[in-house]
């Protein structure tokens, strides 16, 4: 009896998290700046991880939690990669290049090296 209750409770929680994800899509579409959209994507990804975990409980298959772990890590790396790309306009630049001019200089040096070789 309690198992029935918990299964339907988990199903309801999964639907509520889906609704929350749908609301977050609103900010993704209307967000005036890039960073608003990025924030929405990041939050959406976190909620996806939650949804996966709860959905595994609903269908009673523990495999999906592995996907949730993978998704949590990939979500973080994707956010950092997009931020880095929009800051340096390249994924080639090391993250410790502090200012834009230095970053452009290093990429320019690399470009000439590659061009000369």
């Amino acid at each position: 009896m309690f198992a029935i209750g918990m299964a339907y409770f988990n199903l309801a929680v999964a639907f509520l998290i889906l609704i929350s994800m749908a609301l977050m899509l609103g900010r993704l579409f209307i967000g005036p700046t890039l960073y608003d959209r990025l924030l929405a994507v990041n939050s959406f990804g976190t909620k996806t991880v939650l949804f996966l975990c709860i959905f595994c409980f609903v269908i009673d298959r523990p495999d999906g939690v592995d996907i949730a772990i993978l998704y949590a890590l990939m979500n973080f790396i994707a956010t950092i990669a997009v931020l880095k790309f929009f800051r340096y306009r390249s994924l080639d630049t090391p993250l410790n290049a502090l200012d834009r001019t230095k970053a452009q200089k290093t990429t320019a040096v690399r470009a000439t090296k590659n061009g000369g070789a």
Partner: peptide, 25 residues
């Protein structure tokens, strides 16, 4: 155990991602 791992990763990465977005903006 797997859920504990998810929880641990999110505990590390969620504030870091927030900080990175704020700093980039």
């Amino acid at each position: 155990l797997k859920l504990l791992m998810v929880s641990f990763f999110l505990f590390l990465t969620s504030p870091t991602a927030t900080h990175a977005v704020a700093n980039a903006a």
